[in-house]
Amino acid sequence: MINENSKGQIDKWIAKYPKGKQRSAVIAALRIMQEQNKGFLTVELMDAVADYLSMDKIAVYEVASFYSVFETKPVAPNTISICTNISCMLSGSDDIVKYVEKKLKTKIGSNTDDNRIFLKEEEECLAGCCGAPMMQVNHKYHTNLTRDKVDKILADLK
């Protein structure tokens, strides 16, 4: 379930915590597993993390369901998160969201029909206020968004 590369990464995180406190690495482990699985977690993957960190399985489900960075339902491999918090909102993020939704013919929280792009659920502040409005595409920040810029970013994704 957990491949060798992921194991190596998780072990690095476990080493950061005192012996016997390996469960502290759960968020890192889940993030690594989500990456390994191209964007989302499954029950089997969470169980594997629980076994690897000697935790109760339910405790891993709790963490995965608490943080919005973890997707527990299948999503498309490309993820777009558009910030809609105060700075971005004042700079017109609502318009960006509407534009992206229209262009991709999907809604916030869903995949595109061709199952290529996932538009993440309402995203909280991503700490890029100086470049508002902004969005994150596959872990890369794109700031000072305009419709043209969005067109280019989405075109590059294809």
Binding site: D56, I58, A59, Y61, E62, F66
Partner: peptide, 10 residues
């Protein structure tokens, strides 16, 4: 000694 119920979501 074995947790089966949890608080899911937030």
């Amino acid at each position: 000694g074995h947790r089966e119920l949890g608080g899911i979501g937030r």
